[in-house]
Design a protein around this nucleic acid. Structure first.
Lengths: 201, 201
DNA sequence: CGAATTGTTGAACGATCGTATAACAAGCGC
DNA sequence: GCGCTTGTTATACGATCGTTCAACAATTCG
């Protein structure tokens, strides 16, 4: 009977990634209050001490998890836009629709965001992270709007409005999915987008 | 030397109200993570046991605090609408603008909402509370929209869109106030509202 | 003024939190 | 195969969490 290894040594990056994914799962399942060092360690199948070893503290792990999830969302949106072809207006619609359909409109994703928002209010250095990510999202949207013929002087205003419309719908959709019929939120967002754009074209 | 009373007995309703207000202050100052039984009790100047006595648990107190703060917000909006006079369109603008100006656009208010959203995800009976309050807000907005000439068949769609626009702007404004110039969010909301309405009039 | 009422206290409980650290062992180079 | 490096474990620590409850005292009522 050969004794198998009690644990496996992993590459730092690989281990970091597995901790981030475990953290995301715990956040989704139990919410911000349940995302303790121990719960995350159990989910990742490692010892609690490893989180301190790799991230220095839970807050840093949650921030890293947010950055990771946010990157996945950005990827999914990019993919949806690419799949829409070359017509600028169709790409814009695809961006808005994808934001309000699975897998992005996922009530479990909201837990990650809520946990991060809590940190934004409590820790100034994390507020900077949020500003960066929000700015990146808006810049992407401004590019799509510009390609659709929105003049430069209205770009900021329209982009902020469309972002707010989508975010507000996304939030409510995640908080109480039963309020909306299948695809209703995405449809409302598309017609809202059309209305917001029509004023400057 | 007459010894003064060590504490004052209060009417149940009065004490409940003071605990709710203390909870709101703690939420605003320290966020959801800092709203512990002890911190709230210190803020209210009472013993920790009183919270259990009146509310049964911290979660119930936070839910009551949310209901209270939400009622104050609803009052402030009603007042803004009334002050706008009789013109339906002006009332609508007042509603939207007030949502995005002090004291409603207050980054400390966001802490209360975040704490409550965390509970919505974790506790089903609180999710029902949220649905009620969201429905109440939207019903009020539908009345304003209807008075402004939005036809009944578009009421739900437009109300949801306007609510989302305002909520999304409110959220971002609270999360990073420095992103917006003074009054910019309110101005964007007003022009967005005009665009959303113009499609059905 | 004395007794009943009950709002309030404050300590104690067990659980769980985040972090630090000494001991251990997996994997690599020699 | 052996020793070195270092990723990993497991435990311990002090702090803080939510809740409970017997004792206390402010107030009311007879």
């Amino acid at each position: 009977m050969t004794s198998q290894p009690a644990f496996r040594r992993a590459e730092p990056d690989e281990r970091r990634a597995s901790l981030i994914e475990a953290c995301a799962r715990v956040l989704a399942r139990e919410g911000a209050a349940g995302a303790s060092v121990r719960a995350i360690a159990v989910e990742a199948g490692v010892s609690p001490g490893l989180i301190g070893h790799y991230f220095g503290g839970v807050d840093a792990l949650i921030a890293a998890t947010y950055a990771h999830v946010e990157a996945r969302v950005a990827d999914a949106l990019d993919q949806a836009v690419s799949a829409a072809g070359d017509d600028p207006r169709a790409r814009l619609d695809a961006y808005v629709s994808a934001s309000l359909l699975p897998p992005i409109a996922d009530s479990e994703l909201l837990s990650t965001w809520i946990a991060f928002w809590s940190l934004v209010r409590a820790r100034p250095e994390i507020a900077g992270l949020h500003d960066e990510q929000y700015g990146r999202f808006r810049a992407g949207l401004e590019a799509l709007l510009s390609a659709s013929g929105v003049p430069a002087e209205n770009l900021r205003r329209i982009a902020i409005a469309v972002t707010a419309l989508v975010d507000g719908l996304w939030l409510e959709l995640c908080l109480s999915p039963r309020t909306f019929a299948e695809g209703e939120a995405a449809a409302i967002a598309r017609s809202g987008l059309a209305a917001l754009i029509s004023t400057v074209r």
